[in-house]
Write a protein that binds this DNA or RNA. Structure first.
Lengths: 240, 240
DNA sequence: TGGGATTTGTTCGTATGTATT
DNA sequence: GAATACATACGAACAAATCCC
């Protein structure tokens, strides 16, 4: 019986299987760019780090693979996914499509406390940014997941989560070092447009925002310096 | 080294892990409605049926769960997913969004042999329907996956595949017995519109088509008669 | 309520496959 | 090209949870 803070901040208390904890920790580590694209993730090292067997580590890796965060080649092991530029364009093209859908729905029906939730999330983004916390990278993406959650559609939340994760990975691979810092202003503008149920403006801002993110991703590449066990030791904690 | 016919008909020769074969067989069985929603899928029975250990069966089930085709409750096992009516509406709402995206892209750029591929697929649908083969149910869904494949976007293919799978499950749960048989005419019309690069008409047909499918799903429920090992014995074969 | 049967969760030894020297 | 080093794939056994009578 472990307590863990799930992605959306809700605390669910459940008899969590071991692989869930590993999955969550690895996911955070990847999204916060502590584990960079291309880093090898051998089952043994991960199992040792988290104090479980290879099987649990493996299950976590399989789930991360279905999220597109790691790539598993048969008999050749797992590594943090290295999206290509071509894949990057696919991701952002589809992301624009889905985020427009989100905005369209929210302008038709915004839940009661929706705007408040968005505002308080942006405040947290600002705090994390000022503290130069690696959380800020992840929070920037989770703003978009929060938007999806306000639509109430589980499937849409799922798809947006997947695509935001991949976007983060793309930024980790191609973006500038602290590439998450720019978007907060646009988040604020977007909230304003949503408050006025102004779909037109909101979509324009969103398009601009996503293009900005995408452009940031088209700079030069960075090289890798993997020493997993050291990095992961900071991520085996349970809560945020 | 095993040969297996993958979903899209391409034969890929590869050293396929055992769980892949189980995954593919179970998937087919579910999509062809041989395994109905709610049917329990104990690891032991599956392992016995396919002649492998529980580990491989378990891995296959985990992957099916991430596709949304089976539900796994901790310590309580796996079962073919039983989508609710609410989830059904979510699925079709998002499906309309994504399929419109597909059509939009195809009307901008249709690959060379695209129309031919679509026509030959519909021919196969007709053959399967005349033969009253259970394949016709699956082929009807795969028409839409083929559309997505023509866009060339892996991610879009992935999302459409997921959502088509879920739609099939919804039809299995709520639809009339042979609910796949109606759509072929509309597939033909859609191809015609795509040939003319007429996005307007194509989207209208697609909307109508999806609404028809959705409406068919809103009839009465059916009960379950699970006896897995018997059913699965017809699905352990390798090819289609 | 209780206890036995069943099913899942996990571990670890062994086999197998790949890359490298 | 063969041997070695390394990492995954699989299966049998054990532990824990759940179900059913």
């Amino acid at each position: 019986m472990i307590k863990i803070a799930s992605d959306n901040g809700q605390v669910m208390s459940t008899n969590l299987s071991r692989s869930d904890a590993i999955y969550a920790s690895l996911r955070r580590a990847i999204l916060e760019q502590a584990l960079k694209p291309g880093t090898k993730l051998p089952e043994d090292s991960i199992g040792d780090t988290f104090g479980v067997s290879r099987t649990s580590a493996r299950n976590a890796l399989l789930r991360l693979a279905s999220d597109g965060l790691v790539e598993i080649k048969p008999n050749r092991g797992a590594a943090v996914a290295m999206p290509t530029l071509e894949e990057a364009e696919e991701v952002f093209a589809l992301r624009r499509c889905l985020e427009r859908e989100v905005i369209g729905r929210l302008c038709k029906r915004m839940p009661r406390d929706g705007i408040d939730a968005l505002i308080s999330h942006v405040r947290e983004e600002e705090r994390a940014l000022q503290a130069s916390s690696p959380r800020s990278i992840r929070l920037a993406g989770e703003f978009h997941i929060l938007l999806a959650e306000l639509t109430g559609s589980k499937l849409l939340i799922d798809f947006i989560s997947q695509i935001v994760s991949r976007s983060s990975l793309i930024l980790a691979r191609f973006g500038r070092p602290h590439s998450a810092e720019c978007g907060i202003d646009e988040h604020v503008q977007l909230i304003e447009a949503l408050k006025n149920l102004d779909a037109e403006t909101a979509m324009r801002i969103m398009d601009h925002h996503l293009h900005a993110v995408e452009d940031r991703a088209k700079v030069d590449e960075k090289d890798d310096g993997p020493d997993i066990t050291e990095i992961l030791s900071r991520y085996i904690s349970i809560s945020d």
